[in-house]
């Protein structure tokens, strides 16, 4: 195997096993020998995270393992990011992401953030329990391409249409995507969101599609 391939494999398995030390070491090595940092994320780290997501779907691993893998990925991303040429980051676009008001479930949102960042998107994280105005203000100030809203409760998802309405009223020109347990494609359609994704990996694809990439 070529050393490049080996590096991708090691990055992938470091993420799968949640070994952040190995992930960091390998990322550093990749930079040292001049492998494209962006490709490291796309060919090594991201597929690793996908393996973990699939295992979670099948209840083979649980959220602790997801978080550990996410951390390993995040730490490797921190090393790789400065080496990604600015142009490839810029074309990928900007996302304002947050959990809607009344809802403090942020594990899923954090995963979406991680994967989007790994894919080279610029994510502005508003955190959890975010009021309507905060979404709209930030979207405006940052001239964001996409606003992403997460809700894990049927009681909190009912706040989503308010944000979409307010963005329209204030003529903020961006796409809106939603996600989280109780929401669905049909809910997205009914409130006029531009997209829905069932998991973080699909969220990345969705963002890519909406931004024409």
């Amino acid at each position: 195997m070529e050393e490049k391939e080996k590096i991708f494999e090691t990055l992938k398995s470091a993420v799968v096993s949640g070994d952040h030390e190995l992930a960091i070491k390998t990322a550093k090595r990749a930079i040292e020998i001049g492998i494209d940092a962006y490709v490291c994320i796309m060919e090594g780290l991201s597929p690793g995270m996908q393996v973990v997501s699939d295992k979670y779907e099948k209840r083979e691993v649980f959220v602790p393992q997801i978080l550990r893998s996410a951390r390993a990925m995040n730490m490797a991303v921190d090393i790789l990011k400065p080496h990604i040429p600015v142009s490839s980051v810029r074309t990928n676009g900007k996302i304002v992401l947050g959990v809607v008001a009344g809802d403090i479930h942020d594990i899923g949102k954090n995963l979406v953030k991680l994967l989007c960042e790994a894919a080279g998107f610029d994510v502005i994280d508003l955190g959890k329990d975010v009021p309507v105005e905060k979404f709209v203000e930030t979207a405006k100030e940052e001239a964001t391409d996409i606003v992403g809203m997460s809700a894990l409760m049927t009681t909190s998802m009912i706040g989503m249409p308010d944000i979409i309405k307010s963005l329209k009223e204030q003529n903020v020109n961006c796409k809106v995507i939603i996600g989280g347990g109780p929401v669905s494609q049909s809910y997205a359609d009914s409130i006029g969101a531009d997209g829905y994704a069932a998991d973080a990996a699909k969220a990345v694809k969705l963002v890519g599609k909406l931004l024409g990439g």
Binding site: V63, P64, L67, R68, R71, N110
Partner: peptide
Amino acid sequence: GIGDLLLDFF
């Protein structure tokens, strides 16, 4: 913090 607690598992 639930996130930190889950990482403490390892």
